[in-house]
Write a protein that binds this DNA or RNA. Structure first.
Lengths: 131, 131
DNA sequence: ACGATATGTTAGTTTTTATAACATTAGATT
DNA sequence: AATCTAATGTTATAAAAACTAACATATCGT
């Protein structure tokens, strides 16, 4: 599974996103209304956010803080997406498939490795800098 | 913020953990009952799981699949934790503090960097292999 | 002053999660 | 075979979290 897949995986509920971004639910939904983010939905219609979504929200916040209005933010985002036109289209995968893929990969890794090392299993997929 | 902090950060609701681990809520709670995992709790008492928790659950599943019973799993985990006795005690931080720290770091990074690069903001903190 | 934009607030509903109790199934034990 | 126990399923009930939608408000540009 590619890095982009992992970053695009919807994992977090809105409450966590609120804490991580210091945005209100109202703001987050408003930005979605304007299609600056398009969080996945659970079966029961709850928004599930990815790391990409959090990045986007942090940037929206930053731009608004700078006095740019929503129209401006939209423009910035639109320009950004143009930069990616050259990139090959990513294969479309549903959220459920995404999670299944991640799970299977993690389980595969589990099986491949010794049963030890409590630390460092998932970390093969979510690895962080140790700055 | 250290890598361990990030791995220990409670972010995911039980529904996501169920999907990622293919365990039922009953199983996850049962393992918690036996103190194999101790997920954080939200203000409203909802379990919030960290990447470490997911690692642990995947391993529990693996051990049980191998025919080892809960007593055996507990032993394995107990032995594991002994291996870490030498490691310095990690500073105690509440979950809320953890999230605040992550948020602040992300925002700091936001401010430090140019406003561009939609990709690669949070990724400074959650960075993945590109295998 | 006016109109629009961004966000707050509130109400009512649905989904998710929690706990707890009881049920079931498969192995181990007698 | 009958019984125990461990691990998990199932159900009921309650509480929390999240949804939509409508209305309120503050700020800003014209």
């Amino acid at each position: 599974m590619s890095r982009e897949f992992r970053r695009a995986m919807p994992l977090l509920p809105i409450s966590m996103v609120m804490q991580l971004t210091e945005l209100t639910a109202r703001q987050i939904r408003y930005y979605e209304e304007h299609e600056l983010i398009i969080p996945a939905r659970s079966e029961g219609n709850r928004r599930m956010f990815s790391l990409d979504d959090i990045d986007a929200l942090l940037e929206i916040r930053e731009l608004l803080d700078q006095g740019i209005n929503m129209a401006g933010v939209k423009k910035v985002f639109a320009m950004r997406s143009k930069e990616y036109v050259k990139k090959p289209d990513v294969v479309r995968v549903t959220d459920t498939e995404l999670r299944n893929i991640l799970r299977e990969e993690m389980q595969q890794a589990q099986r491949m490795q010794k049963t030890s090392l409590r630390q460092g299993d998932l970390s093969r997929f979510f690895q962080y800098k140790t700055e």
